[in-house]
């Protein structure tokens, strides 16, 4: 489970950033007073336009960024005070995730298994399961740099899941992927839900959200605009189109 309470994140702007943003303010608020809960066995979607604060929020959940204030609990662990302990439960995958091109999929997965402290027997079992599930047997010992985008995406999934995390964070996981490759991610998200894991993913594609999510939060300019179940959202719709309603909420 993920519990977020009154989360805030403010960035200090450099001179160059101030110039680029045409502002005199020395700070920029990325996330403001955000509170929500992601339950186990449910898919939570963080929806918002570009620059809404989705990535910043997910990076704070993944303990990559330290919040300016607020509280984050990952499986009951305070992620701000004890980030290393919280990370043991987290699997983090983004659409822009890169892989080590000079390693093979086996070497990469072994490396991450070691970093997560997975013992050898569990590692071998998990590898076998994941490689079989994702049909990776043919390219396990090829350098990642020589693999296709779809193959690389499968390696990324293995890397994320090797330590069997109970909380999975996806930051725009299908961005830049073709429909067939994105299907692997969709399957993975559904499978995580079936296994009772906590799943949170960000997106700005309403159709993808409709396809997957149980709970939904819409944020804009760092502030929460809507929080509820997908059913709640649909029942409050003022038009027939999900995207139109999403725009209406954001612009309200």
């Amino acid at each position: 489970m993920i519990s977020v309470q009154q989360l805030n994140k403010t960035f200090t702007l450099s001179k160059q950033q101030r110039k680029e943003l045409h502002t005199k303010d020395k700070t920029a608020v990325a996330v403001q007073d955000l509170s929500f809960t992601c339950q186990s066995g449910r898919i939570f979607s963080l929806l918002g336009p570009n620059g809404a604060g989705k990535t910043t929020t997910l990076r704070m959940l993944a303990t990559l960024l330290k919040p300016s204030s607020g509280d984050i609990q990952i499986e009951g662990i305070n992620a701000i005070d004890n980030p290393q302990e919280a990370r043991k439960n987290i699997g983090f995958l983004t659409g822009s995730t890169g892989l080590y091109a000079r390693l093979t999929p086996v070497e990469l997965v072994d490396y991450y298994a070691d970093l997560y402290g997975v013992d050898k027997i569990t590692r071998e079992r998990r590898k076998e399961e994941l490689f079989h599930l994702l049909h990776m047997e043919d390219f396990l010992n090829k350098r990642i740099g020589k693999l296709s985008t779809g193959m690389k995406q499968k390696v990324s999934i293995c890397r994320t899941m090797i330590h069997d995390p109970s909380v999975i964070i996806f930051d725009e996981p299908t961005s830049g992927l073709d429909v067939i490759t994105a299907e692997n991610i969709i399957k993975l998200i559904r499978s995580c839900k079936d296994q009772g894991k906590t799943v949170i993913f960000s997106s700005h594609i309403m159709s993808e959200v409709d396809l997957l999510c149980d709970d939904l939060a819409i944020i804009h300019q760092g502030k929460l605009k809507f929080l509820g179940t997908m059913q709640d959202f649909k029942s409050q719709m003022q038009s027939d189109n999900l995207t139109e309603d999403f725009i209406r909420i954001v612009q309200a």
Binding site: A62, T63, L64, Q84, E85, R87, K88, I90, F92, T94, S96, T97, G98, L99, Y100, A101, Y112, L115, Y116, G117, R159
Partner: peptide
């Protein structure tokens, strides 16, 4: 290089200081 290739972000999510 790691930052540019997008591998550093993932590496920093592992439970290692």
């Amino acid at each position: 290089g790691e930052k540019e290739r997008g591998t550093l972000e993932t590496l920093l999510t592992v439970p290692i200081s």
